[in-house]
Design a protein around this nucleic acid. Structure first.
Length: 491
RNA sequence: CGGGGCGUAGCGCAGCCUGGCUAGCGCGUCUGGUUUGGGUCCAGAAGGUCGUGGGUUCGAAUCCCGCCGCCCCGACCA
């Protein structure tokens, strides 16, 4: 990998601690160091592909668990569609093919001979799913159809980055069909809210909701809604999207139903997804120079108990106390691990669990036994606190809840503090050019103005916040603007 | 695809400029002992087609040419 230019000496000294480059020195190296040190992922033998290691996959499992429950609660069911999509399917919807063709992997051979029709490895599953929907949907009684699938997909990206952009990634894609345009719009917005609620309450990631500009919308959609989050380097990261597809795909895949008046109607559809990119978002939003910091709700291990001893007699005593606490915590529904490995010293364990982002550490040593107390340390900062042994479970639970809330509050404050109303194009260029955060600025809605900003500053319109209401003048062309939009550099 | 960097033990690197005899170092791993409230210490051990193909040379990790791969930055994108 090599040293970055300049200051090699300083880097060695700073890095000596845990092999993590400080954020302030090199943000993207810091991100990679966290992933490496916390053993979240590793590079695969194929360019642009990654192996998600157990520590990283556990985060994905938590995301799946939380989201899947929410999908089921709102009436959706899971299914699985094929990885391969016939070329002809991909080419049916004009915008869709134009948007995805350049980044598709295509299979031309199978079983030793050339295929009659090429097979696309799915970059998303609209086409193959809707070909099936066409068979399944005949009557208004078949609607709405609310299907989700957990799958892997492939997009042949030029430049990749662990979790944020890899050739293959894991995601969920929901695909629904409705009788009316209103119902489809309602579904798209309901899912957007679901994503936002999940993002804030589970990932502790504050987000801004709203539609995308036409330039940023999904190929084939009528409108794309998104939730956008701010990373610690003040760049934006799209954390989830929900599309109202209108009847665009229904028309090309002939998804029609007979309504109550016996008339044939096209369905109105939505699709929506979040991916393993969210793991990257969690890492970048919360972690620090000492390693990974995870919100308790996505941590595989929420609490680690580290017993401390000198003699064998002490060892027995603290381990008994430790396993009793472990049992009680587990009974209280907390994911806990008693780290009684005797080949490592406590200091080593402290560091390891900090690097790996375990939200809370509990220390039990001879002094604690004497005082009938335990020491608690939150991963997101603060001093060690001592609590009576018989109150430990309640206190730990309370601390984890507080930590979850504090992390969201910090995420929200950071985003708000670094989002500024910017008026005037000179001020805007200065603001974006100095990587100062998100610019909330007026935009007339014109594609030309949007393109100009992108070409000249690298910033794009991330989202058109629902919240904004005040009118003004477009910072680029000076024409009337209906509302402020968020401009930012993005991942 | 453009710019930059790198490829030597599981990982991180030195050695290359100025060719030479047995290719080193740190971490990790293994064995034994010692330690345990913030990354213990000591002793010993295992582990390498120097990315790959060719060339120059008495001799190549080192010089020359080709190829492959990976990482970082940019254009494209969840």
């Amino acid at each position: 990998m090599g040293d970055p230019p300049g200051r090699p000496y300083i880097r060695i000294i700073i890095m000596a601690k845990k092999g993590i480059t400080p954020r302030g020195e090199d943000y993207s190296q810091w991100y990679l160091d966290i992933i490496n040190q916390a053993q979240l992922a590793d590079y695969a033998p194929v360019r642009g592909c990654m192996v998600i290691r157990p520590n990283g996959y556990a985060i994905w499992e938590a995301i799946q668990r939380e989201l899947d429950r929410r999908f089921k609660d709102t009436g959706h069911v899971n299914a699985y569609f094929p990885l391969f999509i016939p070329e002809s399917f991909m080419k049916k919807e004009a915008e869709h093919v134009e948007g995805f063709a350049p980044e598709c992997a295509v299979v031309t051979e199978g079983g030793g001979s050339k295929l009659e029709e090429k097979l696309y490895v799915r970059p998303t599953s609209e086409t193959i799913m809707y070909a099936m929907y066409s068979k399944w949907i005949k009557s208004w009684r078949d609607l709405p159809l609310l299907i989700n699938q957990w799958a892997n997909i492939v997009r042949w990206e030029m430049r990749t980055r662990l979790f944020l952009r890899t050739l293959e990634f894991l995601w969920q894609e929901g695909h629904t069909a409705h009788a009316t345009a209103e119902e489809a719009e309602e579904e798209a917005l309901m899912i957007l809210d679901l994503y936002a609620e999940f993002s804030e309450n589970v990932l502790a990631l504050s987000v801004v909701k709203g539609p995308k500009s036409d330039a940023e919308k999904f190929p084939g959609a009528l409108v794309t809604y998104a939730i956008e989050a701010m990373m610690q380097d003040k760049k934006a990261l799209q954390a989830g999207t929900s599309h109202n597809l209108s009847d665009h795909f229904a028309k090309v895949f002939d998804v029609q139903y007979q309504d109550r008046e016996e008339k044939l109607q096209y369905v109105h559809q939505t699709s929506w997804g979040v991916s393993t990119r969210l793991i990257g978002a969690v890492i970048m939003a919360h972690s620090d120079d000492d390693g990974l910091v995870l919100p308790p709700k996505v941590a595989a291990r929420q609490v680690v108990i580290v017993p401390i001893w000198k003699s064998d007699k002490e060892k027995t005593a603290v381990c008994v106390a430790g396993s009793e606490l472990e049992r009680d915590l587990r009974k209280a529904g907390i994911r806990v691990y008693l780290d009684d490995r005797d080949q490592y010293r406590p200091g080593f364990k402290f560091n390891q669990h900090e690097v790996e982002g375990v939200p809370m550490r509990v220390e039990i040593g001879p002094k604690d036994l004497e005082k009938k107390s335990v020491a608690l340390k939150r991963r997101d900062g603060g001093d060690k606190i001592f609590v009576p042994m018989d109150e430990a479970v309640g206190k730990i639970k309370e601390q984890l809840d507080t930590m979850q809330r504090d992390m969201l509050a910090r995420s929200k404050k950071f985003r708000e503090d670094n989002t500024k109303d910017i008026d005037g194009y000179d001020a805007f260029r200065e603001f974006i050019g100095s990587d100062s955060g998100w610019a909330s600025s007026h935009w007339c809605g014109g594609a030309d103005c949007e393109t100009k900003v992108k070409d000249e500053t690298k910033a794009t319109i991330r989202v058109i916040p629902f919240k904004e209401t005040d009118t003004g003048k477009c910072i680029i062309c000076g024409k009337d603007s209906p509302k402020r939009v968020i401009f930012a550099k993005a991942y």
